[in-house]
Design a protein around this nucleic acid. Structure first.
Lengths: 159, 159
DNA sequence: CAGTCACGTAACAATTGAAGTTACATGAAA
DNA sequence: TTTCATGTAACTTCAATTGTTACGTGACTG
């Protein structure tokens, strides 16, 4: 998990999970996902725990256990995933303080709060407009345009 | 400089600088600003150095020296200030990598890049629409609504 | 009923980036 | 020439995230 954005990585993982599930009929383990994301299993579990709380994924223990999507691809929006991740790195929260009497500060904070809120609203709206199914479809389109070889896992694994 | 956002603090400082300048005809020193922002002078200089490079403020050494705005209030936009600060905490940069062959990753990154770009564009547009003069005017309006006592520096200084 | 697999979680170490600090150099005014 | 103030480099905290180890629980296998 180098310098990538959280959301980007998790989406990547979710799509691979869906793929794997339909292809092998079995969920992916934390270890598989960790290898896939270049991180370690505990971090995967931590992150996935957030998604599970939002009902996006489910986990199973024991033999044949692992992670699977809890809903069809077209019923999970990027906004939901982003929310489950705690809306990472969005905006500097304009401090709710402003209470200590400086009217300069109050004017500044109000203006910024409004501005950030507008940008955040747009972002959330757009994220909620895109489902995992959309991304999968986009992927298929690209796959069709580059059929010459397997372009799915070229960079996963270590060898 | 506690848990506040960079931009918010600097705007606060800039408005106080303008105030001070017109009131006393002298620039504010890094020490004054440091006290005002609850930080220390070196941090102030570091930050202001960025603004100076963008031509927003000017510094003078020696006796009577310090920091002053390099332009009238209505010719400095919040966007310019934000830019000078390096656009802190905006969005997770969608990685430009995508080159290593995974089409899933490519699809994800493209979708996110588009979405973030749209939100960022809105944010920048709004910030460029607000000038320091607007904030000062807003402040004056609030001042008029609360004339009972000095509501300017209530929380500055230590005693 | 072991034995193994995989998640769940707490506790701790490593890393990273920002902020604070010290120290010293440079330029300007008194 | 002394004092004030910025300019900057180098170092130290400090906080947040991430990585790691360790151990517990549930589930399937044989």
């Amino acid at each position: 998990m180098k310098r990538d954005s959280r959301l980007s990585n998790i989406l990547h993982a979710l799509l691979h999970m869906a793929e794997h599930e339909t292809r092998h009929g079995a969920p992916m383990t934390s270890d598989m996902l960790a290898t896939c994301l270049s991180t370690n299993p505990v971090v995967v579990r931590r992150t996935m725990a957030g998604l599970r709380e939002q009902g996006l994924v489910a986990s199973e223990k024991g033999h044949g256990g692992g992670w699977r999507l809890a809903r069809p691809l077209d019923q999970v929006t990027l906004g939901q995933v982003n929310l489950a991740l705690g809306e990472p790195g969005l905006f500097p929260e304009t401090p709710p303080v402003e209470a200590d009497g400086c009217l300069v500060e109050a004017a500044v904070n109000d203006a910024l709060a409004e501005t950030y809120a507008a940008a955040r609203a747009l972002l959330v709206a757009r994220l909620n407009d895109i489902t995992l199914a959309d991304l999968a479809a986009d992927f298929s389109r690209r796959m069709a345009a580059h059929p010459e070889r397997d372009r799915l896992h070229a960079h996963h694994g270590k060898a």
